[in-house]
Design a binder for these strands. Sequence first.
RNA 1: AGGCGCGUAGCUCAGUUGGUUAGAGCGUUGCCUUGACAUGGCAGAGGUCGUUGGUUCGAUUCCAAUCGCGCCUACCA
Length: 935
Amino acid sequence: MSQLDDSFNPGAIERALYAEWEESGYFAPTTAPEPYSIAIPPPNVTGTLHIGHAFQHTLMDALIRYQRMSGKQTLWQTGTDHAGIATQMIVTEQLATEGLTLEDIGREAFIERVWKWREESGGTISEQMRRMGSSVDWSRERFTMDEGFSRAVKAVFVQLYDQGLIYRGKRLVNWDPVLGTALSDLEVTNEDEPGSLWHFRYPLEDGLITPDGNAYVVVATTRPETMLGDTAIAVHPDDDRYRTLIGKHAVLPLVGRKLPIISDTYVDPEFGTGCVKITPAHDFNDNEIGHRHGLEEINILSAVATINANAPALYRDLDRFDARRRIVADLDELGLLENVEDHTIKIPRSERSGEIVEPRLTDQWFVKIEPLAQPAIDAVKDGSIAFIPKQYENLYFAWMRDVRDWCISRQQWWGHQIPAWYDGNGNVYVGQNEEAVRADANLDTEVRLTQDPDVLETWFSSALWTFATLGWPDKTPELNLYHPTNVLVTGHDIIFFWVARMIMMTLHFTGEVPFKQVYVHGLIRDAKGEKMSKTKGNGIDPLDIIDGISLDDLVAKRTQNLTQPRMAEAITIATQKEYPNGIRNYGSDALRFTFCAYASPGRNINFDLSRVEGYHYFCNKLWNVSRFVLMNVDSITELRGSEQSLADRWIVSRMRQLIVDAREAVGSYRFDLFANAVYEFIWHEYCDWYVELTKSVFFDANADQTEVSAASTTLVTVLEILLRVAHPIMPYITETLWREIAPLAGLTAKTLMLQPFPQKEDAGLDEEADTAIEWLKEVVTAVRNIRGERGIKPSQDVVLMLQGGTSHDRQLSKATEKLMRRLAKLRGEIVWLNDDDSVPACSVQLVHRLKVIVPFTDLGEAKTELQRLSVEIRKLQTTLEKIAAKLDNPNFVEKAPASVVAKEQIRLDELSNQVDTLLQQRVALEDIIDDNATK
RNA sequence: AGGCGCGUAGCUCAGUUGGUUAGAGCGUUGCCUUGACAUGGCAGAGGUCGUUGGUUCGAUUCCAAUCGCGCCUACCA
């Protein structure tokens, strides 16, 4: 007898089950011959997993569990990323609450603090992953700052340097003045913001005048303070307004510097005045022009974006925006401010600090991308790596084609410190460590070396993820076995950041692709399609869906530590409206099922909690049908095919189809189709029909033992198989139920996790059984429809008559009569009428050409039935007309394939037969009503 | 500006080579505490598939234009 609770309670089973799986070592690779591996995109060690991670992990876990059950030697490589800037920011903020700054405690102590914080916070992610049921191999967990990984990072840096693929130089980079570090282009977002376009007059030298008689040229700028660094004025070579000035000079106001007037086709004569001030040290385009024309680069900004000593004393040490105001005012005073326009401009902001980024000349380390990019492009072109969906390949190519050199140095403390040392004479030495450097360069101990204080950007190390986690640079057995990994599961937002760089670095260092496929999933948004973010307060912690959370706690969680505290009220109101009762504990399986069902290809996913609720109910359905099986089945036997009923054969046939569909869906990363197939089968085939059909065996005292035994066996074996099919999506509930069901099926294994995923069976589909049960369903539905229309209570049984069918109909009716009687709740035998038999006053529904007849109990019913019938007739007639028109079209008959024409012809015949039948029935009903009225 | 994607039921979404009466979940209407499940059962209502053209015997599906929305990339100082 069942040990199961009356309803599904996920909280009661999940934790213990996961602990058991983990302790039993089920997550570690088995010794199966064929490897299958996935490297997890490493989350930020000091963060928490958001719903997007949970989604991604669910898909990976479904793949891994599926492949593990399919007999592969699966490795799901897990680990975390040290997330340089993000982590340093968090710890810096922690220090600030203690009144301390980085400089107060120093580099060494700071790094110790970060490691300590990592110890405290690192557990959050692994706890979340465990609750999600992620079957990662914890024994191989890696961290991008652990010792082995650091060794790999250094080795890569040194080798690239030796190959001339890493260089150091003063270059213009995006500078975050708050964090005091360079950022990559990808870490800068450009948003439209209102701004101004200032027009300034720059006087011409020595009485020079423009063709239209001015002693000055007008330049426009959105950043007036940069004028302090101007070193030229540029015009278009063909611009008649300025052609005579080319090669002459203007004078930079406030500074007095002579500015050469140069010509460059970069200048758009149509825009503004057609005359551009050139600031090579503070603008990327100007910098390129500067290089073309050999212009001086004058850096006028300090690391914290104040004006430095390269500018006139008057402006020194002013903040960039104070300087801007001051300069505009001073130029106005001098009569050099021509006008100011409102102008919407793209403001580059640091994704990290939110601060406006300044292009600034600094010494940085770069990776030469071009030699690395070509092999990476080829790998995708020749199919060594395939993106799924395929359209992302274009995105990848587009980016790879004009990718620039990669700035890898960051002016931070937390991260991999660059393995380069300087002596006092400006020489640089690169090597694994100081000793190696000294040995290589034959430096004696008297030469003082200082290591470069900068660290490598985080993506530099995570680009090595697939192979460094497997032990590279050592030639480990794991590297040999699991690399390349089979698939990378990721969002499209990091194709540039990570995917492209992994491909480049992995090809260069291992000669292998990092993964054979890249499955790109959608991005999770909230139910309204808004991006989830802490600032908007619309994010949800996956654990709160699994375990539930009260409204008060949810509001508190969403409003604490806001970067914009004024948002708190709006967030509170929105949260109260969206979750008036908080969130109930839906459990991990329901959440996972929701993710899979949502995972249709290539789009945004608007995450709606009502879907989770629906799938939680689905879990309960599965739970309860398992209870039904346990309550009604004592044992099963070995079956011979001949002993199975039509119903048994039907569900087995449907199950074979499920297996085929499920395997195909997983194989093509269609987790949505996988989930839907499972849902449809369990609820609408197994529960709605098969279980109901078995009741006419189990609840019939006269049923013979063979029938009971066949039904029991089928019920159990099908359930056992479908638990295996569903396990990759919903591991907890299937494991729990399987342990109850499997013994009935004679299986003694301890865990479902390691059972084989059901194989496609040779037997194929059972057409005879499929036809019979589909027929039964149609007739039963017809009777139920009549009952519904006439308001006949389920408790009341009815008489069923059939007329006009074929011999096949009669045969099917005979074969399924017992089943039909229960499902349609019939009284007495089914009455077969001959075509010319008179029919009592009744309702009629058609199943193809078969008349399904339920006599009236009261002639008053005729009126409502007449109404319904008229609607039905009208519907059929509309369709009939459409098809008739089609077949009347000679073009259709000639050009359409014969099979399509034949199909339409059959439909036409059947429909016209149905319309005729119903028209006759209408006459009959009208007669009854007339008779009644005259009485 | 360029690139990509999306407009299908009240809401969230499927729809795989163009071919029956376009599907699912949630919501909704009516009936039902039937011996797994009211987290349930049965039956129903609800869509001119953004718009306009084109190709075709036939278009939600292919093509073009157009409107609306989203994302990405690059931007004019």
